[in-house]
Amino acid sequence: MTCSKLLTGAALASLISVAAYAHSGATGVVKERMDGMDAMKASMKLLAPMMQGQTPYDAAVVREEAQTIQTHAGEVLTGLFPKGTDGHPSDAKPEIWADWEGFADLALRLETYSQGLALAAENGLMMAGAEGTGMMSSGAMMGATAMGAGGMMGGQTMGGPRSAEALQQMPADAVFTMLSQTCSACHTRFRKE
């Protein structure tokens, strides 16, 4: 076995043991939400290198992983955070319940952006990939700019959430950026380190 395969195996074993430790003692709704977060994390880890052009783009995989995220977002996600379910082994900050409206807004955005990503999967990446075939049409790129694929301000995407149907017109990587910014904003505000 090569050294890199050994290191990759060791890193994977380490991640599994960390996840197992983090879930030790978790039961009921806390375990359910941890499992849901793990599923979304796995989808994001699969999608991120694809969206960055590091692995081949596959619209079917993008659609499937976006749908996985969608099944754990929105009201499904907020339903897994009843009052009194913070504290060990949960990573939830009390701010979730102090700012329930902000938390629910991010959960809804996550749902909308994952739906939009599934719908935009066929659009591919803004840059046409490693073959150097050029950029997407100027109309698609203008749509991505006008739709607000830009950064987050105060944990919210500029211009607020879009409809999944409007996101369908954007390049998949632009929608993915909005999705990942939403994950990051939620973790920053509502998850213990």
Rank of each mutant, 00 (worst) to 15 (best):
57 Y>M: 12
60 A>F: 07
62 V>K: 11
64 E>P: 02
64 E>Y: 13
64 E>K: 15
67 Q>V: 13
67 Q>C: 06
70 Q>R: 15
70 Q>G: 10
70 Q>P: 02
70 Q>K: 14
70 Q>M: 14
71 T>G: 13
72 H>N: 10
74 G>D: 12
74 G>I: 09
76 V>E: 08
76 V>H: 11
78 T>G: 13
79 G>E: 04
79 G>D: 03
80 L>V: 01
80 L>N: 02
81 F>L: 13
83 K>N: 07
83 K>Y: 05
86 D>H: 12
86 D>N: 06
87 G>T: 06
88 H>L: 07
88 H>K: 12
90 S>V: 02
90 S>W: 02
91 D>L: 07
93 K>I: 12
96 I>C: 05
96 I>A: 02
98 A>T: 14
99 D>M: 05
100 W>E: 08
104 A>H: 06
105 D>M: 05
106 L>P: 01
107 A>N: 02
109 R>T: 12
110 L>Q: 03
110 L>F: 03
112 T>R: 10
112 T>M: 07
112 T>K: 08
113 Y>F: 04
114 S>N: 08
115 Q>G: 12
117 L>H: 03
117 L>A: 04
117 L>M: 05
118 A>V: 07
118 A>N: 07
120 A>Q: 00
121 A>L: 06
122 E>K: 15
123 N>P: 05
125 L>V: 04
126 M>E: 10
129 G>I: 06
129 G>Y: 01
130 A>Y: 12
130 A>N: 10
131 E>P: 09
132 G>N: 14
132 G>P: 08
133 T>P: 00
133 T>R: 11
134 G>I: 09
135 M>P: 07
136 M>A: 15
136 M>C: 11
137 S>N: 08
139 G>N: 11
144 A>I: 03
144 A>C: 12
145 T>E: 05
146 A>G: 07
147 M>I: 02
149 A>W: 11
149 A>H: 11
149 A>P: 00
150 G>A: 03
153 M>Y: 06
153 M>P: 00
153 M>C: 01
154 G>F: 09
155 G>P: 00
155 G>K: 01
156 Q>R: 14
157 T>V: 10
157 T>K: 03
157 T>P: 03
158 M>D: 03
159 G>L: 05
160 G>L: 01
160 G>M: 04
160 G>T: 09
160 G>H: 09
163 S>E: 12
164 A>C: 09
164 A>L: 02
165 E>W: 02
166 A>C: 01
166 A>H: 11
166 A>M: 14
167 L>W: 08
170 M>Q: 15
170 M>Y: 09
171 P>Y: 08
171 P>R: 07
171 P>A: 14
